[in-house]
């Protein structure tokens, strides 16, 4: 039985070198040549002055910006260094209170609006970094953003439409709006 100790150690060393060093280095090498932007985090803007990653959402609270999904990361929302969801169960009173507060915040920011709120706008995402909202959640906020920016709702809607992504290959996933890109476009910082 002890005759297996030597092969066990040497095999482990070999596979550590092969799958733990050679393999990730080979993937990194190829990835940095073929997909340099994606491999490094899909940052918007220039290398010297990145505007954020198009894949990672940011916190928006002011009325003139579109708001993203609520984020449960700690100690601050949209913490890119510590992802995670709320893990609140469906009957948890804390979840119910949080949703109430989020609905109130949305209504306070736009008192003229009293329709039912799209669910993704008041529930925390799984990663806490969700860069997207549903097109319904974007539509819900157009009135508020237009008013805060003294723009016409039509011109805001036009921008929303431009940053609405359909399903990948028209089949996969769900239609969605990239909140960071849309807000950068509103600020005219996106070329």
């Amino acid at each position: 039985m002890t005759n297996h100790i030597k092969p066990a150690i040497l095999m482990l060393l070999f596979f550590t070198v092969l799958t733990g060093i050679v393999y990730p280095l080979a993937v990194t090498f190829c990835a940095q040549i073929v997909f340099p932007s994606q491999a490094n985090g899909s940052f918007l803007g220039s290398n010297e002055q990145p505007l954020g990653s198009e894949l990672i959402g940011q916190a928006f609270n002011r009325p003139e910006y579109f708001w993203g999904r609520p984020s449960a990361t700690s100690p601050v929302s949209y913490n890119g260094g510590a992802s995670g969801g709320s893990n609140q169960g469906p009957t948890n009173p804390v979840l119910i209170d949080s949703v109430k507060a989020r609905i109130k915040a949305l209504r306070d920011a736009d008192p003229s609006h009293s329709e039912a709120v799209p669910v993704d706008l008041v529930t925390a995402s799984a990663s806490g970094l969700d860069p997207h909202i549903s097109p319904a959640a974007a539509s819900y906020q157009i009135n508020r953003v237009a008013k805060a920016r003294h723009m016409s709702t039509d011109s805001v809607r036009e921008l929303v439409d431009r940053y609405t992504e359909s399903r990948q290959w028209r089949i996969l996933g769900e239609p969605r709006v990239n909140v960071l890109k849309l807000n950068l476009a509103l600020d005219q910082r996106l070329k």
């Binding site: 999904r69 969801g85 469906p90 669910v119 993704d120 925390a124 997207h132 996933g173 769900e174 969605r176």
Partner: peptide, 9 residues
Amino acid sequence: NMEGKETRF
């Protein structure tokens, strides 16, 4: 039930 789910999925 979108609590704990991502929009793209």
